[in-house]
Design a protein around this nucleic acid. Sequence first.
DNA 1: TTGAAAGCGCTAACAT
DNA 2: ATGTTAGCGCTTTCAA
Lengths: 338, 338
Amino acid sequence: MKKKTTIYDIAKVLGVNVATVSRALSGFPAISEATRKAVEETALALNYSPNKLAAALKSGKTYIIGIIVPSIQSHFFASIINSIEEGLKNSGYRVILYQTNESVESEIKGVKTLLEARVDGIMASLSLQTKDVAHFEEVVVQNIPLILFDRVSPLLDVSTITMDDYKAGYMAAQFLLDQGYQKIAFVTTGRQVNIFTERVRGYKAALEESGLPIIPEHIILGGLSIKDGRYAAGTLLRGKNPPDAIIAGDDFTALGVIKKLKESGIMPPEIGVIGFANEVFSGYITPNLTSIDQHPNQMGAACAELFLKMIKQKNPYELLEHTVLEPTVVERQSTAKK
Amino acid sequence: MKKKTTIYDIAKVLGVNVATVSRALSGFPAISEATRKAVEETALALNYSPNKLAAALKSGKTYIIGIIVPSIQSHFFASIINSIEEGLKNSGYRVILYQTNESVESEIKGVKTLLEARVDGIMASLSLQTKDVAHFEEVVVQNIPLILFDRVSPLLDVSTITMDDYKAGYMAAQFLLDQGYQKIAFVTTGRQVNIFTERVRGYKAALEESGLPIIPEHIILGGLSIKDGRYAAGTLLRGKNPPDAIIAGDDFTALGVIKKLKESGIMPPEIGVIGFANEVFSGYITPNLTSIDQHPNQMGAACAELFLKMIKQKNPYELLEHTVLEPTVVERQSTAKK
DNA sequence: TTGAAAGCGCTAACAT
DNA sequence: ATGTTAGCGCTTTCAA
């Protein structure tokens, strides 16, 4: 292993002090132009690459921020991560990812790992399993900026970036009502996660406002997946009071619902179907799926912006923001009731 | 900012030496059970969190490996990353991601960043823009394990994990021929990237073996995207010798092709369509898209395994492996010629 | 403008 | 089994 060049090597070559080299390299103002130039040239000649570890150890800043997400495979989270990176690009911050795969244990491990790596900040979206959030408290105690996005917890007194999920649920139901549908079912997860419970709340509110009854059999709390969607659709069709429209907790579930409907000889929009997340494929399946867009890019950009604001203050927690983004209905064929 | 607990604090409390604490914490064998227990308890009581930075600075090992990919948004790369993480999970290695967004400058910056972070290894898939790979040479010079996957370069003498892209192209064409298609077009990118050129080579070989002519107008070298697919399909349909089947460089492009065909009143498999990557949506669009599966999970697992092998040797480059994975045709409706 | 020197928190010889 | 001690490569006072 070739020994790496350090500032000592540069200092020795030039016959100056390491401190001078350090200053020259880090853009310290009180340095003669000649020295700076000489240092830079020598650094290049010796193929010098600064050891950020040492700098971080000394300065206490790693310029790394950690992102904890349930899964990187989902287009929603991948887009958020993309936008966070984009928003942080010019600030010198790099990003480490940690996937929880919807497991709390993994999430706990992730927080620990990031803390040990001495990241300068953490952005997290909670796993479906997460109920207790004690593992995040250490982040706050250490005064490290923590931002929760999308899946947040009221138990944590930190800044958040979320969707207005109540409104999203309301919008989905109202949109179907406006199209003329009357018996609207909701297929989602039973997990007590705010984004999902809020959507159901919004859905119920829309029905009530229209004077429609809330039918318990129309709310199916299973899982979220293509398979769960198919299963739930089957249950609804066999029920004694089949719906004329179905809201699915995400687009994958909606896909399963559509599959089952088509197999049963029903082609949406005969029964209306609407999903959440506006995945890539949603515009291309048959029929195209109407979906609630949750604007992951806005969410990621907001995370980055907020983080940069937080680190500018002496105490990051001086500032507590709760940004709520507005969902949008992306209208397509699956709800085009004539 | 609360001052963090260090091993010195633990040592002071217990009246032992820091080295003892360090040993107890890192599972050094020659330590009395009593001491180990006392140290562990005190560590817990003081809410100790090891500073990996300091450990890394001293030991020269960060236990972080960097992954450079063109984009995390693609299901293909997301799956690979997932599998790498999975394969590394129990070895203590963590993963930093760097996205190039298909830009060389970004790739160069990524290599520099990872080197500065003193990662213990780098796994990379080249951007479409990348021709010169000098920026990766420094990694090899520093004797840091470098593995190239999927999009590799012959200019770099490192281990690789790739698909047999020649075979993939051959399989796609042969599969269509077996279905009875005769005039097969290929829509892909003109970039001189091995995976794409190899596929075209395989495609040509299959045609030749069947005694079919290679028609230059049937090979469209534009870009890879839904838009590019639509455009290329339009060009092919308007040509004086329209094809009866189209191979698209990826599933998104295939999606564009299908869209254009449907708009022109042609429903595949009337004209056969086949894509690459077997994206999530491919099984759900209408008609379902036949696609060449590139087994990203196998690729990620192979990367992780190879990396672990490399670091086990004194000289990581003592071992040079070139693993080539086999593609698979996932047959669906878009090629079901009767 | 530059130099000297003290650490950041940990590990790993080398001693005992 | 445990203690001593010298760094890892850098930043950052304090002096000059």
